[in-house]
Design a protein around this nucleic acid. Structure first.
Lengths: 110, 110
DNA sequence: AAAACTAATCGTATATTTGCGATATACAAA
DNA sequence: TTTGTATATCGCAAATATACGATTAGTTTT
């Protein structure tokens, strides 16, 4: 997109909420997160079996979730076991709690 | 995008969480929501004054927030007063609470 | 060493998002 | 009625997202 206006510096909180929200903004990724929650962890193979999407597509969604921090992959040759990253998950939970609380009026956004 | 695979029917909850998350996935929209929270309501003019973005761009973000249901506009000639839609806001809050709770393993996604 | 399996990445196509300026629309004020 | 103010929408451009199949890379098994 055109970026003719000055860059806006948002607060860390705003950037983090936005990033987590984006990770959560696709039903497939919610499905993956639910599967990981259900089984505590799971292999990509299992996801590919369950979801009606190409392996490459699922891999892309996993990458996005990984980039957001919400999940982590553990190498378990020859497979990779994905789990929810509890620390980040709790952070996201806390951030959304603030967002939906009265304290939202106080948090720094820009 | 190519849609060669079958359409996936996600649950209402999944679709709603994803939609709310998408609305929250941009720092500008978080900023707008914070401003509305702070002042309970506010006119577009005020937003245009505060944010370093073109009026048309802000209007677009307002439209997205409106479409998500999180805000509503009240005509107040010649201006439009935007407010947070408390009902939908509470719904979003509840959905994210479930998402981050143990009950997430139980909610229907697909 | 060869074959099989797992997962990531590449290249490509299309859709959507984000931004802008310009224009349209609707109402209020002069 | 003309002018001004407020907001939405249009048309465009660039970036990002979403999907696929094909290929690559790394392990494991045979």
């Amino acid at each position: 997109m055109k970026r003719t206006t000055q860059h806006i510096d948002y607060s860390d909180d705003a950037v983090r909420i936005a990033r987590y929200a984006k990770a959560l903004s696709h039903p497939v990724r919610l499905t993956i997160l639910k599967l990981l929650s259900n089984q505590s962890c799971c292999f990509t193979t299992d996801l590919v079996d369950v979801l009606p999407l190409a392996q490459s597509t699922i891999s892309q969604h996993l990458k996005e979730l990984k980039d957001s921090g919400l999940i982590q992959g553990e190498i378990n040759p020859p497979k990779i076991k994905y789990c929810i990253n509890q620390e980040k998950w709790e952070e996201a939970k806390a951030l959304f709690e603030v967002l939906f609380s009265k304290d939202f009026t106080k948090i720094k956004i820009t």
